[in-house]
């Protein structure tokens, strides 16, 4: 069996094309049409007027992380370190401790995500066996005045709520 070979037709060999000047004018005509259209009616620009008009965030968008909770408000995370193990940027720092609320035995006492190091790959979400970490906050613009403010602690991560309903999130492929 031979390899499938696709022959590409080489452009630019005809005299008209090799003169170049005619092609230049053709190209200029194309760009000028765009210019004229936009100049005469700038509502036709392919532009989103950010920040006044926000982009639509889908449930599959990997925004800033959050830690999820059970209905009673207790943390789902059991500090299994799966996210930290899988994180390719090594941006998650966990310290585990004894759990006292009777659910299981282990709970993180420290859960830091350094957003300056995070690459938003979503591996932590996929690795989590407890659905304890999600990236469904819909926060796409992460900014800060100091490096320290980019370090998300456990409290920050727990304080944020998801931007989508459970059905929407599940439908998004999670």
């Amino acid at each position: 069996m031979s390899i499938k070979v696709k022959t590409i037709v080489r452009q630019g060999k005809s005299l008209q094309e090799r003169l170049y000047l005619i092609e230049v004018f053709k190209g200029m005509a194309v760009t000028f049409r765009h210019f004229l259209r936009n100049f005469l009616d700038n509502s036709k620009l392919y532009v989103r007027h950010y920040p006044e008009v926000k982009p639509e965030i889908t449930p599959r968008w990997r925004g800033r992380h959050r830690l999820t909770t059970h209905e009673d408000g207790s943390m789902k995370c059991v500090a299994c370190f799966m996210c930290q193990t899988n994180c390719p940027a090594k941006c998650i720092q966990i310290e585990a401790g004894e759990r006292t609320d009777g659910r299981t035995e282990k709970v993180p006492v420290k859960f830091d995500i350094d957003l300056l190091e995070c690459i938003y790959c979503g591996y932590c979400v996929e690795a989590c066996p407890k659905d304890a970490i999600r990236m469904d906050t819909g926060i796409f613009s992460v900014t800060g005045y100091k490096r320290e403010s980019m370090l998300m602690t456990m409290d920050d991560l727990l304080a944020t709520k998801g931007a989508f309903s459970e059905e929407e999130y599940k439908k998004g492929g999670a």
């Binding site: 760009t31 936009n38 620009l45 532009v47």
Partner: peptide, 10 residues
């Protein structure tokens, strides 16, 4: 502005 209009930006 010209560059933007040529490229359908604002």
């Amino acid at each position: 502005r010209g560059a933007a209009f040529f490229q359908d930006r604002s």
